[in-house]
Design a protein around this nucleic acid. Structure first.
Length: 482
RNA sequence: CGGGAAGUAGCUUAGUUUGGUAGAGCGCCACGUUCGGGACGUGGAGGUCGCAGGUUCAAAUCCUGUCUUCCCGACCA
C-alpha cells in the first residue's frame, strides 16, 4: 500500500480549503465537480449531467422503496388557484410569504391569481375529496416526482433554491393508526437511504411545534451532520390527522355505516439531499461519492496510452468490468495526472490505472478516493477485489461520518455549557427542554442554534430545562442548521 | 429585507486612485515533441469591460440607477 504523500498542493488550487472558508469550499466543489451552474434568474440552478446522474440514482432507490411499500406514482398540476390554497388556514399562513404568483395569461389579466405550487397538499386534498367515498377506497397511497417553487430570499445551490426537484408523497387512510404507521414507515425509508446508500447516519425524531410543517399535527424528521458542524434537515414525514380532511371535506362511509374523515400523511425528500452528500463526505480535493450511489463507481485511466496495446487493454478492462460494476474509461489524450485530479474532484470512488508495467505484470493499480490508498491487484483477482474494495469504501465513508457525529455530539446542562459546546466543538447538542416555546425562541436568539428534533430514543441528561431551569419534559437535539 | 464585498474572453484576473488604441495566465483550435500525479514549443480564434442612463472631444476608469453572485444577519415546510 502507498499513500499519496504530501505533494498535493497543486491538486487543490481550484478549491478553497474547507477549514479556511467552508461556504466558499461548498460553492467551489459544486462548480468544479460540474454538478450545477447558476440559472439566469436569481436563485435558480441548472443541474448538469453529473449532478443529475447522482440525483437519478437517489431517485431510483427511493422510487423502488415507495413501490415496494405499495405506493403509486401520479402527476398533479403545477398550478393552484388562490382560493384552493386558502382552504387550510395554517398551511397558507406557513407558505404565503414564499409563493410565486401567476397574474397574467398571455395578454389577459387573470380574474384569480394562480399560485405556482410550493407543495401540493391542497391539490391532493381536493382530489381525494372527489375520489374517496368508501372504506373500500382506502388507503390511497400516492407519490409524485415534481418541481416546486419557493421564493426564498437567500439561496444556495441545492440547499435552498427558488425551484427544486423532489418527491412528495400524499396518502389517505381510514384510521389514525394506519396513517401514523405510514408516517413512521416513510421516515424509515428516508433514514435507510441515507445510512445504506448515502453513507451517513441520521438522527430520527419529532419536530417541535415551532418547527413542524404548516398544517401538520406533527412532523417527523431525519437530521444529519455536515462537515462544518451544522445540521441539515434531510427528509420529513408529516402526520396530518384529519385537519386537511376537515378543510377539504374528505370523508368516507365506513363499514359501520358512519361517515368519517380520512387520516392523512405527506412526506418529502428533495435535491437538497445533494447538499448533504457534498457536505458530509467532501474533502479538500473535492466531492466524494459513496459507491452505492455513484453514477460511475470506477474510472479506468490508461497510463502511457500511446504505447502499444495500452489503450486496447484499458478498453478491454472496461468491457470486462462493466458486467460487474458501473465503470467508465477516460481514453482522451489528456495526461494521466490531469485525469487523476479530474476524477478525484468528481469523487469517483475507485480509480483503475493500467500502464505498460501493469500489463507486463498482469496487474492493475486500484486507488481509492476516500483514503488515497493504492494497491496492485493481479488481473486474476480483479473481479473479486474491485467489488470488495467498493464495499470497503462505502463502509469507511459511513464510519467516518458516524465518528464525526459521535465526536461532535455533546450534552449541555445549562446555557454556559451550551454556548461553549457550540463554540468549541460544533455539532448536535443534547439538552433538556421544558416544552415552552419561549425557551426555544430564546435559545435561538442567543445562540442561533435551533431545535432539530426530539429524538425517539430519549435520555435524561439532566432534570431541568437548559434555558429556564424549570422541570424538563424531554431531551432535544439542538444545532445550528442550514 | 438590512450590512459588507465583487462583476473585464469559458475560468482566474491586471488595468479604475490620476479618463486617452483592452492586457496576461489557464482553457480552447492546428501542428510537432511529450505521456506512471494537472507537459512543452510554435501559430491561431475568442471582449458591445454585467445592463441602462448621465458627464466629457474622449469612459472599463467619474456620477446615478439597476441586475447578478458571494459573505454576515433577519426571514425561512
Amino acid at each position: 500500500m502507498f499513500s499519496l504523500g504530501q505533494n498535493n498542493k497543486q491538486f487543490v488550487e481550484n478549491i478553497t480549503a474547507m477549514e479556511d472558508d467552508f461556504p466558499r469550499w461548498y460553492t467551489d466543489v459544486v462548480k468544479q465537480a460540474e454538478l450545477v451552474d447558476y440559472g439566469t434568474v436569481r436563485g435558480t440552478m441548472i443541474i448538469k449531467p453529473y449532478g443529475f446522474a447522482i440525483w437519478e440514482n437517489i431517485r431510483d432507490q427511493l422510487d423502488r422503496r415507495f413501490k415496494e411499500t405499495g405506493h403509486s406514482n401520479v402527476y398533479f398540476p403545477l398550478f393552484i388557484p388562490e382560493s384552493l390554497l386558502q382552504k387550510e388556514k395554517d398551511h397558507i399562513e406557513g407558505f404565503a410569504p414564499e409563493v410565486a404568483w401567476v397574474t397574467q395569461g398571455g395578454d389577459e389579466e387573470l380574474e384569480e391569481r394562480i399560485c405556482v405550487r410550493p407543495t401540493s397538499e391542497v391539490l391532493f386534498g381536493e382530489y381525494y375529496a372527489k375520489n374517496i367515498h368508501s372504506y373500500r377506497d382506502l388507503p390511497k397511497l400516492y407519490n409524485q416526482w415534481s418541481n416546486v417553487v419557493r421564493w426564498e430570499k437567500t439561496t444556495r445551490p441545492f440547499l435552498r433554491s427558488l425551484e427544486f426537484l423532489w418527491q412528495e408523497g400524499h396518502t389517505s387512510h381510514a384510521t389514525q393508526k394506519d396513517a401514523e404507521q405510514e408516517t413512521a414507515q416513510m421516515l424509515d425509508i428516508y433514514a435507510e437511504l441515507c445510512e445504506h446508500y448515502l453513507a451517513f447516519p441520521v438522527l430520527r425524531g419529532k419536530k417541535t411545534e415551532k418547527e413542524k410543517f404548516a398544517g401538520a399535527e406533527y412532523t417527523l424528521t431525519i437530521e444529519s451532520l455536515m462537515h462544518d458542524g451544522k445540521a441539515l434537515q434531510s427528509g420529513t414525514s408529516h402526520y396530518f390527522g384529519t385537519g386537511f380532511a376537515e378543510a377539504f371535506n374528505i370523508r368516507y362511509l365506513d363499514e359501520d355505516g358512519e361517515e368519517k374523515p380520512v387520516h392523512q400523511t405527506s412526506w418529502g425528500m428533495s435535491t437538497r439531499i445533494m447538499g448533504a452528500l457534498i457536505m458530509v463526505h467532501g474533502d479538500n480535493r473535492g466531492l466524494v461519492v459513496p459507491p452505492r450511489i455513484a453514477p460511475t463507481q470506477a474510472m479506468v485511466v490508461p497510463v502511457a496510452q500511446h504505447k502499444e496495446g495500452v489503450l486496447d487493454k484499458a478498453y478491454d478492462l472496461r468491457d470486462q468490468l462493466q458486467q460487474l460494476v458501473r465503470v467508465d474509461i477516460d481514453g482522451s489524450d489528456k495526461k494521466p495526472g490531469w485525469k487523476f485530479n479530474e476524477y478525484e474532484m468528481k469523487g469517483i470512488p475507485v480509480r483503475i490505472e493500467v500502464g505498460p508495467k501493469d500489463i507486463e505484470n498482469e496487474q492493475v493499480v486500484l486507488v481509492r478516493r476516500d483514503s488515497g490508498d493504492k494497491e496492485f491487484v493481479p488481473l486474476s483477482e480483479l473481479e473479486e477485489r474491485l467489488p470488495a474494495l467498493l464495499e470497503e469504501v462505502q463502509q469507511n465513508l459511513y464510519s467516518q461520518a458516524l465518528t464525526h457525529l459521535q465526536e461532535t455530539t455533546t450534552t449541555a446542562k445549562d446555557m454556559d455549557e451550551f454556548k461553549q459546546a457550540l463554540e468549541e466543538n460544533p455539532g448536535f447538542i443534547k439538552a433538556m427542554w421544558c416544552g415552552d416555546e419561549a425557551c426555544e425562541e430564546n435559545i435561538k436568539d442567543e445562540t442561533s442554534a435551533t431545535s432539530r428534533c426530539i429524538p425517539f430514543e430519549q435520555e435524561a441528561v439532566s432534570n431541568s430545562c437548559v434555558y429556564c431551569g424549570r422541570e424538563a419534559k424531554e431531551m432535544v437535539y439542538w444545532a445550528r442548521a442550514y
